[in-house]
Write a protein that binds this DNA or RNA. Sequence first.
DNA 1: TTACTAGATCACCAGCCGGTGACAGGTCAA
DNA 2: TTGACCTGTCACCGGCTGGTGATCTAGTAA
Lengths: 218, 218
Amino acid sequence: MNQSDPTPQKTPDSGEGNRSRDRAATEKRILDAAQKVLTETGASGLGVNALARAAGVDKQLIYRYYGGLDGVLQALGERIALWWQDRLLDDPPISPPATYAALIERLALRLLHVLRTEPLAAQSGLWELADTSGLVGPLTASRARALGEWMARTRGSLQPPEGVDAPAVNAILVSAISYMVLASRTSPTVVGLPLDGEAGWARVEAATRRLVRGVYGA
Amino acid sequence: MNQSDPTPQKTPDSGEGNRSRDRAATEKRILDAAQKVLTETGASGLGVNALARAAGVDKQLIYRYYGGLDGVLQALGERIALWWQDRLLDDPPISPPATYAALIERLALRLLHVLRTEPLAAQSGLWELADTSGLVGPLTASRARALGEWMARTRGSLQPPEGVDAPAVNAILVSAISYMVLASRTSPTVVGLPLDGEAGWARVEAATRRLVRGVYGA
DNA sequence: TTACTAGATCACCAGCCGGTGACAGGTCAA
DNA sequence: TTGACCTGTCACCGGCTGGTGATCTAGTAA
């Protein structure tokens, strides 16, 4: 142990009184930085050192406050779960749709809008797909739950037509929308459809409407 | 500085005549290992060292034969592209469908089957989504092209009904199938639909058929 | 003033990473 | 035999990673 340390010049408090000495604020900085790194750099590239650097915080604090990277991810998962509830439930609760078809149409278009405008939403979706290590299981569940609650509160007493497997059909629609938004982030065309401009998305919306009305009736 | 190396005992060729001294075979081992690592460990965790270890090959050979990791990925991309063409084009070329709806139905179900049974296909799809760094652009393009060629060869002179945006509708269907297969690999239920058994997939197939017939006519 | 606590920082470690240069041994043509 | 060439192997480098123990310091209560 010969650390010796030849340069004890301690820069004796040279200005920079940044250390805020506020645990709650520090925890928030860490969480915010994790979110930012995830949405900007992707799942890889999120390590303890990188996170500490991005947050402008000593990495020791990550261990102290969250017990490590896993704890940070878990806390971030809870935050995202809450966020999803807000986004879907705080929808304008007006004008219940007249038909089941209209209900699903609205759900689909709303989901498309949220995914397209909120990078975090799309990113967390991708995160779920890539998973490995099941850290994000609760996150998936919470989004499904939020969608379900939105349905329950908006549908009133509407019922799907007889003989149609509504859960399966709806799952297909939601899946398609999720995939297209994700894919459009890395590729200008998705399955041959140009999705780098508003025109492409308008076509998606129209086609979605058509599909919905095709199965659930006009 | 002080490498000294106290144990120069060179194990003078102690059996182990494994070095195959066959460049083509070594290149194949590297490519196979890259594919395996990608499908099993995911995009992260694929580094030069890990790859060399998995392939049982000195990493120097990766640099020599492929110029680095990028070269390996590029070569792998070409391999996967060829693979896609085989899988889709070598479909039983029999019995042209009678209607456009039947054509799309077949395309969708075939895609679902290929994705479900070939882990590499699903994995490469996910890889495209996660991208970052555009290494896999050509890969995406090649799949889209393979799908297009399959369509062209199978459709004959079938045309979609007037007034339906067929490219958009088809893109939605393909996207949905891709997403569900991907998501089912990490979660037992997708958007509330249980996809951990054959029953769930049967529902997806039935719902797909219904959607197709709903837009393109019975 | 003093003693104490909790927040923040520092110093350091073992280990892995991507990447390079040098070398050993086989193969084949001249 | 000689020498060029090719395949495979090894040692090494700087830099970064995850993780830990010790220390510093602002604020507070006695």
